[in-house]
Write a protein that binds this DNA or RNA. Structure first.
Lengths: 188, 188
DNA sequence: CAAACATGTTTGTTATCCTGAACGATTTGC
DNA sequence: GCAAATCGTTCAGGATAACAAACATGTTTG
């Protein structure tokens, strides 16, 4: 036995739902993808933890990308309003990120309220992450480095860049820095 | 050898970038997740096609969901800083919109700093195109109506909705309201 | 310089994914 | 009514992912 049995069950149910939605049987999907029906059965019943490659081949037959598959939420209730204290918070090393929405799943973008403590520094980030990213400084000052460009921004100043560029955020000055930013996942 | 070698290379590269972004070594991530460093090495170098479960355990250590991971795409180019006074401003009836970026062209989203004077009201707005819109209240209070839902938000509170729904923003309380928001542009 | 540490890589061994084939249970056709 | 077809499931096997330990190469430290 292995650890992630519960997660495998969920993954299987998700696949089953998507397969049935497209009107295919396990064998039909097997034929379309070259993956044996037994594999599909085991995955759907949560008895197997598939490899990414196998899952990809199966999803190809459903014309679904891995990104879409994992973003898919059968019963996703999309909230509209979020109280300040309910925003999920991600903290690491003097940087606090408050995230609008519980997850990127099904969202065109993620909005963050970022708080940088005195001296906080994201470190030199060799490579970027999401697709595009921008924001406005609310209070305090921050030094932002994007590629070979560097600038110190204060309240009201803004930035917008392709976040696949290497970038670094470093708080400067006597008070903490607050930024509201947004970043987008690529459609892929 | 197996078929999806190229895909595994990309997957590995992606993981490597994300790991390095968070400043962890292979061994550091291994320790944080319980997954051996050798496994991480093999995955990153594209020599292995990991199971979903293993990948999930690894990504847990990076605080990244599978959904976010597969939505991630490396590449690069384009960046800009904007001084507060250079932000293009659109004003109409007590509402001031400061727009990050001079043009929407080629941008995945538009970021706005919205200032609502006392009593300002957008009236009912409905976008024809498919778009999403969200934001965080910085100061003051505002009543937001989306479809049949209505709520008054204060500093730190947030919202996110499909902007095809009719929506309305109305300042309330004794002081002007400032919001930083983001919305997706029309898909041309 | 040498010892100690850190990094990513490679090597066996074990666990398990993946497969083709066989199995019961329904449904369809004549 | 009895094949024939279709459905999802289960079962041994070869293939390979996952693991622990050793390896190679810097980098830091005394």
């Amino acid at each position: 036995m292995f650890a992630g049995m519960e997660e495998d069950k969920q993954l299987g149910l998700r696949l089953k739902l998507l397969r049935e939605r497209s009107g295919l049987s396990q064998r039909g999907l097997a034929k379309a993808t070259g993956v044996p029906n037994s594999t599909i059965s085991l995955i759907e019943s949560g008895k197997m933890n598939p490899s990414v490659g196998a899952l990809r081949r199966i999803l190809d037959g459903l014309a679904i990308s891995l990104s879409e598959f994992f973003a898919f939420q059968p019963e996703a209730e999309k909230d509209v309003f979020y109280a300040a204290e309910d925003l999920p918070e991600i903290g690491k090393g003097g940087v606090s990120l408050k995230q609008v929405g519980t997850s990127l799943a099904g969202r065109a973008m993620m909005i963050l309220k970022e708080t940088y403590d005195i001296g906080a520094d994201t470190g030199r980030v060799k490579y970027g992450h999401e697709a595009e990213e921008g924001g406005i400084v609310i209070e305090g000052r921050i030094e932002i480095t994007v590629g070979d460009r560097r600038k110190i921004l204060g309240p009201g100043d803004a930035y917008y860049f392709d976040s696949r560029n290497p970038h670094r955020f470093r708080q400067v000055g006597p008070r903490k820095c607050v930024i509201v930013s947004a970043c987008t996942p690529p459609t892929f």
